[in-house]
C-alpha cells in the first residue's frame, strides 16, 4: 500500500513537471510581449527594467526561478493586477472554486447514485426510461445553456435567487446545480451499468435464495460493488468540477479562479497562467491519488496488481 502511494506521488511530481514545462514552453515560445503593445511609447531603459522585473529577459533563468518559487507556492508578481502577487490572487479565488466544485460533486452523487440504482432495479420500467432520457439530456446539454436556462427561470422570472455574484448562501444553489448536472448524469449512468452487472451476480441470487429481502440484498450486498466504478470516476470528476468550472463561473459571475485564468490568459499574464496551471494540475493529481488510495482500501485486489 505504502509503496503504491509513493509510486503515485513520484509519478505525480513527474507529471506536474511535464505540465509545467509544456505550459512554459507554450507561454514563452509564442511571441507576445505585454509591454510591447503599440500605443505605449516607453524609453528603452524603462522597458528593460520592466522586462527584468517580470523576468522576461532570460527564459532559461526564468524557467528555474519560477519553478523554485512555485515549489514554495510563490508564483511571482501578476502583470494585470499590478499590486497583487499571483499567490494572493489564487489564494483568494481558489476557495471559491473549490467550494463550488465540492458542492456540485456532492449534489451530483446525491442525485446520480439513487437515480442509477432505482433505474437498474426497476429495469425497463417508466422510471428507468425517464432516468435514461434525463441522463442523455444532462450529458448532451452544454453547461452554459443549462446555466442560462436556470438563471432565466429561477432568478429573472421567479426571483427566487440572486442573478449572479457570490457571498451569501443564496448564491450557491444555481451554479452548483448547473455544474453538477453533467456529472450527475454520468454518475447515474455508471451506477446503473454497475448495478445491472452486479445484480446478475451469483452472490445476489444466493442472497435472495436464502430468503433475504430484495431491498436488503440491494442495499447491503449489491450496492457496494456497484459503487466501485463510480468511485474511480469521482477523482477525475471532482478535479474537473473544481478546475473546469469557469464557464459556469462566467455565467453566474462567480469570482472563482476560472475567471482569473481567462482574464490572465487574455492579458498575456505569464505568471498567472503558469501559476494557475500549476495549482490545477497539482489538484488533479492529488485527487486522482486520493481516489486511487481509497479504491485500493475498498478493493484490495487492485493494489496487488500495480507496483
Amino acid at each position: 500500500m505504502m509503496r503504491r502511494v509513493l509510486y503515485r506521488l513520484g509519478l505525480g511530481v513527474v507529471t506536474l513537471f511535464c505540465v509545467y514545462a509544456l505550459t512554459f514552453w507554450m507561454v514563452i515560445v509564442v511571441p507576445g510581449n505585454p509591454f510591447a503593445s503599440g500605443d505605449r511609447n516607453m524609453p528603452a531603459e524603462v522597458e528593460r527594467a520592466l522586462l527584468a522585473r517580470y523576468h522576461m529577459d532570460d527564459n532559461t533563468a526564468y524557467f528555474f526561478e519560477y519553478l523554485a518559487g512555485a515549489v514554495r507556492l510563490d508564483f511571482g508578481p501578476s502583470f494585470q493586477y499590478r499590486d497583487w502577487t499571483c499567490t494572493q490572487i489564487i489564494a483568494q479565488s481558489l476557495p471559491v472554486s473549490v467550494t463550488l466544485g465540492l458542492l456540485a460533486m456532492l449534489l451530483a452523487v446525491l442525485i446520480g447514485v439513487p437515480a442509477g440504482v432505482y433505474s437498474a432495479v426497476r429495469r425497463d420500467g417508466w422510471l428507468d426510461g425517464a432516468t435514461l432520457g434525463l441522463v442523455l439530456v444532462g450529458v448532451s446539454l452544454p453547461t452554459f445553456v443549462i446555466g442560462s436556462a436556470l438563471l432565466t427561470v429561477f432568478a429573472v422570472y421567479l426571483k427566487m435567487f440572486p442573478i449572479g455574484g457570490w457571498g451569501t448562501l443564496m448564491h450557491l444553489p444555481l451554479p452548483a446545480l448547473t455544474l453538477a448536472t453533467p456529472f450527475a448524469a454520468y454518475i447515474a449512468r455508471l451506477t446503473r451499468i454497475g448495478m445491472l452487472d452486479v445484480l446478475s451476480g451469483d452472490f445476489v441470487r444466493t442472497g435472495i435464495a436464502k430468503g433475504l429481502g430484495r431491498g436488503r440484498v440491494i442495499r447491503r450486498h449489491a450496492f457496494g460493488h456497484a459503487f466501485l466504478p463510480v468511485l474511480s470516476y469521482l477523482g477525475p470528476a471532482a478535479a474537473q468540477a473544481m478546475t473546469g468550472s469557469f464557464v459556469v463561473e462566467k455565467v453566474f459571475g462567480v469570482p472563482g479562479i476560472g475567471q482569473h485564468f481567462v482574464d490572465s490568459a487574455l492579458n498575456l499574464d505569464r505568471g498567472m497562467v503558469l501559476g494557475t496551471v500549476f495549482v490545477f494540475s497539482a489538484m488533479i493529481i492529488v485527487f486522482n491519488l486520493v481516489v486511487d488510495v481509497v479504491y485500493g482500501m475498498v478493493d484490495p485486489r487492485i493494489s496487488e496488481v500495480v507496483a
Binding site: V14, A265, V273, S281
Partner: peptide
Amino acid sequence: SRLIEVVTCFPVLFLILSVTVWL
C-alpha cells in the same frame, strides 16, 4: 503506460485556452 498516465493528468481546457490565446 506512464506517458498515458501523465497526459491523462493534463488540464485540457487550460492547455487549449493558453494555446488559443498565445497563438
